[in-house]
Structure formats: structure tokens, C-alpha cells
Amino acid sequence: MNNKSEEIIGLLSEYLHGKSKALKLALISFFSRGHLLIEDLPGLGKTTLAIGIAKALGLSFGRIQCTSDLLPSDITGVSIFNKNTGAFEFHQGPVFNNIVLVDEVNRATPKTQSALLEAMGEKQTTIEGKTYNLVRPFFVIATQNPVEQFGTFPLPESQLDRFTMKISIGYASRQAEKEILTSGSRREDLYSIKPVLSRDEVLKIQDAIREKVYMSDKILDYILDIVEATRNNKHLLAGISTRGVLAINSTAKAKAFFSGRDYVIPEDIRELAEYTIPHRIIAKEEYEHVDRKEIIKSIIEGIAVPA
């Protein structure tokens, strides 16, 4: 299974020059049944990443471009009256895809945001009093712009908490950009790549990660040590939530799986910490200007690993 992930990464890095790290993180959050928030400047390849993952995994893909006039039904779907049958017919929205790219999520109004986030959290959506289960697997990649101008509704921390990881892609390296320039963007080719995995295989891997990867008590204690430290930290107002703990747990398992192990080691947690933790914590007002990643780093460096 491990080589599958390498195959995906190998396949996609042709299209995503120098973004293998982001790709790997995205795959981890996908296989840990989470959702991904990418905070980055526009035009750095977020969409390419999302499409690439969807295609490589042989899954359906939907895209929502958020604007302030986007309505919840634009995401979830809408019932339209059919004159021929004389009944309302439900037309599924983009959320009924396996992989949903929500572009510039902080441009949508809170009402629309929460509709999306309900879908993310519950893997179901309620439309006109009727609850629909979403397809499996279900993976949301949301993007947001860090420097914000006008007409944005920043996601509150409670919503942010629903994302398993928050990453940024960053500028491509000089070398990678040169390659892009010489060969041109290959976005179109992405749509025609052959999937590496089938949907069933994807689900199997997800199950295997959840059930087959062993999480030692020592590691659980290590995680809880970190969690407790964030809750008692003098710089922080709020620490990691229980949902956060679950996210740390499942991403660590996924990472272990992709590293070819069936057990979790402390590195799995440590290396993902800067993506899984900072967006979940709330710094005290006087420390708001301090980089949260730094706070988390210093907290983790204060905790001895087991062994």
C-alpha cells in the first residue's frame, strides 16, 4: 500500500512541480478521513493539487467558488419542480462529490460556510427537511487567502477546528518555476490521467489505517501530554479540542501507514504537529502577534518522547 502512495506522488509531481510535501500532507489528511485547509496566495496550484488527487484516486470531483452571494443550496443542491412528473426533483450540489474543492472559503457568508461545514463534519446534509448521506470517501479541500481585502468572512476557530490540517503550499522553487515556464502548465492533462487506485481500494486503505495501524499507549500518553500542555500554556487561551486530539491521532496513523509502518512513532505526531495544531488553538490577546507555529513548537520541545 505504501508504494501506492509513492506512485500517486510520483504521478502527480509531474504536474505539481516541487509540491510533493503539500501533496503528501493532502494525501495524509485525505486518508485519515479528514479535510484540508490550504491557506495561500492565489495562483500557487491549490486547484491543481485538488484535481490531481481526485483524478489519481479515481474519484469524482466538485468545485465551489465561494463568493459573498453564494447560497447554501448552491453547495448542497436544490429541488426543482418537474412539470412532467409534477413533483420536485432533487438536484445534487457539488458537495455530493468525493473530493470537493472549496475555493476562497472565507469569501462565503457565514450561513453558507456553516452549511458546508455541517457537510464536512457530519458527512451528511439536510435540504428542505430531508437528510442526505454524502458519498464516501468525502474530502474537502478548502482554500483561503491569508491577506484579506474586502468582503470576507474569516472562519471562526470553531469552524477551523473541523479541518484536520491547515497547510500552505508556498511559492514553487526557482527550479520548479523554470520547468513550468519551459513546459507550460499541464492542467488539462491532469483530467486525463489514469487513476492509480479505485474507489474501493481507497476505502480499504482508509479502513486499514484506522484499524491496522497500532497506536501504543505510550504514544497516546505522548499525544495527551501535548494536548494538556497546550491547554495549560500561558500564551494560549484555548488548547486543543477533543476533535483536535482525534485529528492528531488519525493523521499520525495515516503518516505511519505511508511510512510503511503498522505502528505509530512519536515522529508521526511531531512532524505533523505544525499542520494539525496551530489552527485549533486560540492565543491570548497579548500574544496574538506571536507565530502560533512557534508556540506549538516550543510546547512540543518541552515534552520528552517516549523512549
Binding site: 497500532y214 501504543s216 499507549d217 504514544i219 509502518r261 505509530v264 523512549a307
Partner: peptide, 9 residues
């Protein structure tokens, strides 16, 4: 080698 035993309890 060590981790394979230790972290598997």
C-alpha cells in the same frame, strides 16, 4: 528495529 518492538508494545 527498536521502534518496531517498542511502539508495538
Amino acid at each position: 528495529q527498536f521502534g518496531a518492538v517498542y511502539y508495538r508494545d
